[in-house]
């Protein structure tokens, strides 16, 4: 089970858009095998870079409004938010090193 906090359609504005921090939102679903594969990797990255980035999860089944707003058509999709704006999108389950490389601007 992932340690990341769940965000919802209701809490998205407060927890993500209005946050002072850099937030990575992991758009996922129960039925998505690659999402389950990438989840523990995101947990590791969250633990190792807790000062720089907060990782939260959004279940696209339960929260269709947010998924639709960000035009999610493929998961896992990871979007980095800063000051309410998407500053980076990472698509698909990738090895830890590859995700860290994509997040280099935010975790180093």
């Amino acid at each position: 089970m992932s340690k990341a906090m769940d965000v919802t359609d209701a809490s998205f504005e407060a927890e993500v858009l209005n946050s002072e921090k850099t937030i990575l939102v992991d758009f996922w679903a129960e039925w998505c095998g690659p999402c389950r594969a990438v989840s523990p990797i995101l947990d590791q990255i969250a633990a190792e870079h807790a000062e720089n980035i907060t990782i939260v999860k959004l279940n696209v089944d339960d929260n269709p409004q947010t998924a639709m707003k960000y035009q999610i058509t493929s998961i896992p999709m990871m979007k980095v938010f800063k000051g309410g704006e998407v500053v980076k999108s990472i698509l698909g389950a990738k090895p830890k090193g590859a995700i860290e490389l994509e997040l280099a601007d935010f975790i180093n």
């Binding site: 679903a29 039925w31 998505c32 095998g33 690659p34 999402c35 696209v60 089944d61 998924a67 035009q71 999610i72 058509t73 493929s74 998961i75 999709m77 698509l91 698909g92």
Partner: peptide, 17 residues
């Protein structure tokens, strides 16, 4: 457009269509 309507995994992405 991979991930933005182009997909190789129906079980992953079908839900969005």
């Amino acid at each position: 457009l991979s991930g933005y309507g182009v997909s190789w995994c129906a079980t992953c992405d079908g839900f969005f269509f």
